[in-house]
Design a protein around this nucleic acid. Structure first.
Length: 554
RNA sequence: GCGCCCGUAGCUCAGUGGAUAGAGCGUCAGCCUCCGGAGCUGAAAGUCGCUGGUUCGAACCCAGCCGGGCGUACCA
């Protein structure tokens, strides 16, 4: 509907110029808004105020000229008015809202889809937790955000690939191997000092026991150069498997799992370093190799190869991001924890140095999750091995509530996640509020079938019975869904969908409370059934994009 | 010190140039012979951290302060 209004304004402005009502042809991007106050109409535009200086006319005069030239062929406008300093307010005929219901049914699960992506290949990499321990709630938030963004982008015409980057190389993996080996040795009665910087969780001992059962005491006599990598690979493999299972249980499925180690094995890291050395982007200083990230706005240059000859994480990241683009992605998105924000400029520099445009690379920073139980903070220490894992949370409060709550905030806002609250089935917990709409409508449909309303053919007369204010409100809300998705995709902000669904749910519940769908009048009942079924479809669409189920019964 | 993020109702948060700033929770007052009360209606509640600036118009943009978080490695 908003597009139609924009079209009318554009047409009117051109006509006004042609017949001399407006002196200038200059038409800007026309903004049409839904006013906050109902008395200001269904839509309004500020274009007359924006154009005042270029037209050299007072805004109200411009507004008059535009309104005079509007040709409303479809008779969607009930009236227009000029208000305040120069707003043009548009009031829509109630009957003009009706077609949205037909549209929802016709487009069905594609309702709200668009093609702003134009089929461009886009990769979104998220979670990418180190395989040194189980996923915690923070990773869960990243997973929920990344997955929802991916779904929304897909729905808006991008060709999306979801990737998990496995940091299976470097020091942390070495520490993991060492941790397991020490626990292993302890199983044979060796007196060992277990360092604080080793992984403390019980799972480390579990893997040690498993190795003991399979390999006996073979590792006791090996050099650590052999046994530590063995333990590391053994444990990492199992941890990755568990991570994958936890993510599947959370409803998150990746298209690709990419190993950091393969970047080294294939020589890509070395090749990138050589390449940039030749291009003088990498230079030697104090015995280390530095990348000139300052050239692209970073605060200081960054080390890629340490004095001791070991590469840094940044070295493989340069190769990794170059490889992403080499795989043909037009845009690359990384979802990181907010504590990594200091890393953005150096990776962005590397991307730019590789000849890509800066805005082809985008980082979504997901802020931390405070885990609470009944208002009290839950101890979370990875080192001490005391933490509630994502799996624990999903098992306790359920996948739907967990995912939905993660998406009830902008991702740059810290989030309190209260386990007791998440389990509550009240308005504290909006997931049920939204799902309840779906279940309620299913219930109405079941009841309707008993009353003989089954497979009802399309009937314009029935549709035309819809004219209650609450019904018009619902149609307006349905009409807003495509635009909500578009902005959610453009800004990569899934919480916009979450808020939309809560809003739609609220409007539905109010309607439900005031009016019956199944009435004594069969024509009216049919019309209302069309409408509620359309609402149900949107609720299901939206929840699906967020990775949340839409139950028929609760 | 420098950089990034945040500061909106008692609490948790929406709102990225428009008109009278919204929602949930909490508080108070109401609504079920009827499709699911996991629901609905109403009320009270605000100097949008502070001060300047930009303009017809600022919670939103700019500058400077004040508070909180994070980062500032030859860790990831």
């Amino acid at each position: 509907m908003k597009e139609k209004i924009k079209h009318l304004i554009l047409q009117a402005s051109n006509a006004a110029y042609l017949n001399g009502d407006l002196p200038s042809k200059a038409i800007f991007e026309i903004e049409v808004d839904v006013p906050k106050i109902a008395s200001h109409g269904d839509f309004s535009t500020n274009m007359a105020m924006i154009m005042a200086s270029s037209q050299k006319m007072p805004p109200r005069k411009i507004a008059e000229a535009v309104i005079k030239n509007i040709i409303d062929r479809d008779k969607i406008l009930k009236k227009t008015e000029i208000a305040g300093p120069g707003f043009i307010n548009f009031f829509i005929n109630t009957s003009s809202w009706l077609p949205v219901i037909r549209k929802v049914h016709n487009e069905n699960i594609r309702y709200g889809a668009c093609n702003i992506g134009k089929g461009k290949k886009i990769q979104i990499e998220f979670v990418s937790s180190n395989p040194t321990g189980p996923l915690h709630v923070g990773h869960g938030r990243g997973a929920a955000v990344g997955d929802a963004v991916a779904n929304i982008l897909q729905f808006c015409g991008y060709d999306v690939q979801k990737e998990y980057y496995i940091n299976d190389s470097g020091r942390q993996i070495h520490t993991l191997g060492k941790s397991v080996l020490l626990r292993y040795k302890a199983l044979f009665g060796e007196q060992i000092e277990y360092p604080e910087d080793c992984y403390q969780g019980d799972y480390v001992s579990d893997y040690a026991t498993e190795i003991k059962n399979r390999e006996g005491e073979a590792l006791l006599n090996q050099e650590e150069e052999m046994s530590i990598p063995f333990c590391a690979r053994f444990a990492a493999k199992r941890i990755i498997k568990n991570i994958r299972q936890d993510l599947e249980a959370f409803g998150v499925h990746f298209d690709n799992w990419y190993s950091e180690q393969t970047l080294y094995d294939s020589g890509k890291v070395d090749a990138v370093i050589d390449d940039f050395r030749n291009k003088k982007m990498i230079y030697e200083k104090d015995g280390a190799l530095w990348f000139k990230t300052t050239k692209y706005g970073d605060e200081k240059d960054r080390v890629v190869v340490r004095k001791n000859g070991q590469t840094t994480y940044f070295a493989s990241d340069i190769a990794y991001h170059q490889d992403k683009f080499d795989r043909g992605f037009d845009r690359v998105i990384d979802v990181w924890g907010a504590d990594h924000h200091g890393y953005i400029s150096r990776v962005a520099s590397a991307v730019e140095a590789s000849g890509r445009d800066r805005n082809q690379f985008h980082v979504i920073l997901v802020h931390l999750v405070n885990l609470l139980r009944g208002g009290e903070p839950v101890a979370m220490s990875t080192r001490a091995g005391e933490f509630v894992t994502l799996r624990d949370v999903v098992d306790e409060v359920g996948r739907d509530a967990t995912r939905f709550i993660f998406l009830t905030r902008h991702y740059e806002s810290p989030l309190d996640f209260d386990l007791e609250l998440a389990k509550r089935k009240t308005n504290d917990n909006p997931v049920f509020y939204v799902q309840y709409v779906h279940a309620r409508i299913s219930s109405i449909i079941r009841k309707g079938k008993e009353d003989g309303f089954d497979n009802i053919p399309w009937d314009e007369k029935a549709l035309a019975t819809l004219n209650e204010p609450e019904e018009i409100n619902l149609m307006k809300a349905m009409d807003r869904y495509p635009e909500t998705l578009r902005s959610s995709a453009t800004y990569m902000e899934p919480h916009r969908v979450t808020f939309y669904l809560m809003d739609l749910a609220s409007i539905f519940h109010a309607y439900y409370n005031k009016h019956r769908v199944l009435t004594d009048d069969p024509v009216l009942s049919k019309g209302r059934l069309y409408m509620v079924r359309a609402i149900q479809k949107i609720i299901r669409n939206g929840l699906t994009l967020l990775g949340v189920s839409a139950p028929d019964k609760m």
